[in-house]
């Protein structure tokens, strides 16, 4: 039901469900039972043999023996896939589905004595043999469809549209993700370690005293110190640009300096520097108009994850899940 109503409200996904909707009532009943019988939970067992197979698969594919964490992740995904697959069957997503049909025709041809028979005959043959329930490609396909449905189909709580108010709220709740970087405007005087060796810091201190005593402004410092390839005066720059020019430690030190006066000396990757911070533009939360599309994308992405997680949680509650391996449990990090 929950799924059915969600699906019906989302015309874009109808193509997924050409057959499924015809069986709406039946499936609604089945999924209702499936989810609301706390006493008769459906069993889902990941047996020792299956876990061994998972390990073996990983080993065969990668030539590396998996760690417990890796097995854990693979088992959790296997459980999710299995649950999604069973749900897809419960919703009859396999009925009248052209992809499943093509695969079954293909399989039918494999086992047929008469490959030139009409497709319909191959299809029937494959169904007769129960290949629609045993083929791993179909299983994988159906769990994939179900995963997509769970993530994409809107719910009343998590709709596909985003209101302006929601945009604003999200921005207010998550300002860090959208902050403009802090910008500084600095002038500096350079004391080369290559040229002055260990004297560089002392030379800088001497000049600092003099500059402070004379009250020198940044524009009055021509020819002081050593020539710096990037010059003495810098435009408004953010932290990463300052790091490019001076290195990380220097940029870190800058954060704690007062503006409007000569300070330092600060060590950089190249030597010592006297610094005059001419202006600081703190990080700002941009106006919504400037980042509306980024905020919308972030919200929609978050909702897809929430829908998938909620669906999986809901579906898992309908199962008695047992993993037959002491080291591995059902809920793994993926």
């Amino acid at each position: 039901m929950k799924f059915l109503t969600r699906l019906q409200k989302f015309p874009a996904l109808h193509f997924l469900l050409i057959g499924a909707l015809l069986f709406g009532i039946h499936q609604a009943h089945q999924s209702y039972v499936l989810r609301h019988s706390p006493v008769v939970k459906e069993e889902l067992v990941i047996g020792r043999a299956q876990i061994e197979q998972i390990k073996q698969d990983i080993f065969t594919q990668t030539a590396v023996r998996p760690s417990t964490a890796q097995v854990q992740a693979a088992v959790a995904k296997t459980i999710d896939d299995e649950i999604l697959y069973r749900q897809a069957l419960a919703l009859h997503l396999d009925r009248n589905n052209p992809s499943v049909r093509n695969r079954l025709i293909q399989l039918g041809k494999f086992v047929s004595q008469d490959p030139k028979a009409p497709d319909e005959a191959h299809y029937r043959k494959a169904l007769e043999l129960g290949l629609d329930r045993s083929d791993l490609v179909i299983k994988r396909y159906l769990s994939g469809v179900m995963r997509l449905v769970a993530a994409k189909v809107p719910t009343p709580q998590l709709p596909a549209t985003v209101t302006k108010q929601e945009l604003q709220d999200y921005l207010t709740r998550n300002p860090q993700a959208f902050l403009t970087p802090q910008q500084l405007k600095i002038s500096q005087i350079y004391f080369s370690r290559d040229k002055r060796k260990s004297q560089a810091e002392a030379d800088a201190k001497t000049l600092l005293k003099q500059l402070r005593a004379e009250g020198k402004k940044p524009e009055e410092i021509a020819d002081q110190g050593d020539p710096f390839l990037e010059g003495n005066h810098f435009p408004w720059l953010n932290e990463s640009s300052l790091q490019r020019s001076f290195g990380a430690a220097f940029t870190q030190h800058l954060q704690n300096l007062p503006a409007g006066t000569w300070t330092g000396p600060l060590p950089s990757s190249y030597g010592w520097h006297l610094v005059f911070i001419e202006g600081i533009r703190p990080p700002e939360v941009p106006a919504l108009e400037q980042v509306a599309s980024q905020v919308r994308n972030a919200i929609l992405k978050e909702r897809e994850q929430q829908r998938l997680a909620a669906t999986l949680q809901e579906l898992r509650s309908g199962y008695a899940i047992r993993v037959e391996d002491g080291e591995v449990h059902a809920n793994g990090p993926i």
Binding site: I58, F59, Q61, V64, Q70, I334
Partner: peptide
Amino acid sequence: DVFAVGGTPQT
């Protein structure tokens, strides 16, 4: 991951 297939896992 070194052993990933089909895009999973991304460890």
